[in-house]
Design a binder for these strands. Structure first.
Length: 492
RNA sequence: CGGGGUGUAGCGUAGCCCGGUAUCGCGCCACAUUUGGGAUGUGGAGGUCGUCAGUUCGAAUCUGGCCACCCCGACCA
């Protein structure tokens, strides 16, 4: 049991925070609501980026970069989008500081350097991008445009939590333009599938694909699709969104194209994004009271080799064997770190790598050299096995696959076990308190009912699952007829 | 932004009520013995007590402003 991590049964929020900080992923910074992502955390994010970026490229997308600042007049062009984000925008009003004449050595904002037009720090980039697309698009031959950008955005949140909700965060935002509604909807769904694929095959995190209700929809979208995942405490986490934007932004920014028939029409749009919030999802899907657990496919280092030895001679002998194993594993595309620091003792290293979630640890000592063996420990089950050095590559390659699939299977079973159907409002409320998770229940389809349930229970409709089974029933709240169940949960 | 709490060495803390220049543990540095699950001993370094102002002969301690963080609400990826 870790000395530094608060057990999750005792205090789940504290457990989460301890993991982030003690596993060296991120820290609070001197800036309110903003975090420092430390090398170990950033390395995981880079792994996510690399995997996602390849998936985007494989589906025909290209990367570009748009400005951080958005002139207010552009920002307000799409009314619903602007309204939706207005309350959480950072705004640049001046472009210069000067020395304070009344307080030497201090700076003040120079009142003479007021911007003619304020600049909004992007909370999302639809406005600046659609203002640009206007100049890129004249004809159907210019379509589709399939652009993604990796960027930081700022949303001035009241309450922040490392990775889950910070004032500044890193993400990718795809922005596509299409000639037809059908094509745009297809793109929206395709990217949702990419996200679900990534979540399940890389994060080892099962997700429910669905569509948001009008209340929960992205400001400015006609439809918002999402992937929702269930965390270990039974709360839901929205892990990615893909929006069908209709012609809303094309109309706001007057982006028209000439079709084959010569007629002008507005362009159809999508946008889609995932953020550093996925780091929070990773933590809350797999980690335990001993620290972080990283799925092998996203681990910055998949295997660490810890030498156990006496004296310089011992280290030399062990290192020879360790470096050989390292090479053989690397030849199989396994990332390996050989930690030969003699400033820390083996036990200390064991605890450290466990805390940081490295999937596999090899301990190699002089005793092993004599026997031709290594001790292999897996992070997910905390189990150890002694194997022949000769079998190392095959054993560990398979072990990494096992860990990846074991993490997914465990998370899937947990999600299934905590997804329940309820028929009455009383049962619904009891379930939320006693066995939190996804709750499938009938809803009359009105925003009013959704709002009431949210007010009374803090539970929201996470989504209407795609390919939802049609089933006649009555709304748990109003008793009115309903044709399908929707998925409720308390959410992050 | 509303309610509550906290801020003392890198981290965790005692001292604050009742004013007199700061306690302990971990960590850090040196040396020795150690090394198969966070080693042990000896010696040592490290502090504008969050910050700014006020009261006082004297402030970690009393008063006020500000800042940051944590918890609970409203908001949210």
């Amino acid at each position: 049991m870790s000395k530094v991590i608060t057990p999750k049964e005792q205090d789940y929020s504290k457990w989460y925070n301890d993991i982030v900080v003690e596993a060296d992923m991120a820290d609070h910074s001197a800036v309110r609501g903003c975090m420092v992502i430390k090398p170990h955390g950033y390395a995981i994010w880079e792994k996510m980026q690399a995997a996602l970026d390849k998936m985007f490229k494989d589906t025909g997308h290209v990367n570009a970069y748009f400005p951080l600042f958005i002139p207010k007049s552009l920002f307000e062009a799409e009314e619903k989008n602007a309204e939706g984000f207005a309350k959480e925008c950072a705004v640049v009003t001046h472009y210069r500081l000067k020395t304070d004449p009344n307080n030497k050595g201090k700076l003040i904002v120079d009142p003479e350097a007021k911007l003619e037009e304020e600049l909004v720090v992007r909370p999302t980039s639809e406005a600046i991008i659609w203002n640009t697309y206007k100049t890129w698009i004249q004809s159907y031959r210019d379509l589709p445009i399939l652009v993604n950008q990796w960027a930081n955005v700022v949303r001035w949140e009241m309450r922040t939590r490392l990775f889950l909700r910070t004032a500044e965060f890193l993400w990718q935002e795809g922005h596509t333009a299409h000639a037809t509604k059908e094509e745009a909807i297809e793109e929206t769904k395709k990217m949702l599938d990419v996200y679900a694929d990534f979540a399940e095959n890389w994060l080892a995190m099962p997700v429910i694909k669905g569509v948001k209700t009008a209340n929960e929809r992205f400001a400015g979208a006609d439809d918002t699709y999402c992937i929702e995942a269930l965390m270990q405490d039974g709360k839901a986490l929205q892990a990615g969104t893909s929006h069908f934007l209709g012609q809303n932004f094309a109309k706001a920014f007057d982006v028209k194209f000439a079709g084959k028939d010569g007629k002008l029409d507005y362009v159809w749009a999508t946008s889609w994004g995932v953020s550093t919030r996925l780091m929070g999802a990773l933590i809350m899907s797999h980690s335990d009271n001993n620290g972080l657990v990283i799925p092998p496919k996203l681990a910055p280092v998949q295997v660490v080799i810890v030498p156990v030895y006496k004296g310089d001679e011992g280290l030399k002998k062990v290192s020879e064997a360790a470096n050989d194993i390292k090479k053989r594993l690397q030849a199989r595309n396994i990332s390996v770190k050989y930690d030969d620091r003699d400033t820390q003792r083996p036990g200390w290293k064991f605890a450290e790598y466990e805390l940081k979630g490295i999937p596999v640890r090899i301990a190699l000592g002089e005793r092993d050299l004599a026997n031709g063996t290594i001790e292999v420990a897996r992070r997910d089950l905390l189990s150890k096995e002694v194997i022949q050095i000769a079998d190392a590559e095959n054993y560990i390659a398979k072990l990494l696959e096992d860990i990846q699939s074991n993490l997914y299977t465990k998370a899937l079973e947990r999600t299934k076990a905590n997804t329940r159907k309820v028929e009455t409002y009383a049962e619904f409320k009891r379930m939320l308190d006693e066995q939190p998770g996804f709750i499938l229940a009938h809803w009359d389809g009105t925003p009013e009912t959704e709002e009431k349930i949210k007010e009374e229970t803090k539970a929201t409709i996470r989504c209407i699952p795609l390919n939802n089974e049609q089933e006649a029933g009555v709304c748990i709240y109003s008793g009115k007829p309903s044709s399908q169940r929707v998925m409720f949960a308390r959410a992050y």
